[in-house]
Amino acid sequence: MPSKISEKKPEKEVAAEFTSYYLQRATQEFAEDLDKVRSADDFKSGPDGIAMLVHALQQGTALFSSEDQRRIIVAAQTTSPAAEEK
């Protein structure tokens, strides 16, 4: 059962995968605005500016409970074997 496999996945791993997915989606959805921010006068070049942007974007993961995060990550993992079966 795919769900059983996924349940074994430790909490930390799920959180890390979810954060990476969240960032990927956010940068995709707000690509245009992010470019504008990066060209704003007060944007610090170098790692500090980027660190602040990433920090600001990824804190939104707090909106999702660990259960919700697992749901989303598990969806990705259970699809692939199903697709292979087809």
Binding site: D33, K36, A40, D41, D42, F43, M52, L53, A56, Q59
Partner: peptide
Amino acid sequence: KLSATWIGYAAFLFQTAT
């Protein structure tokens, strides 16, 4: 305002609210 300061401020306020 789409500026780095606003984004930083919003992130800070978000954390305060949490």
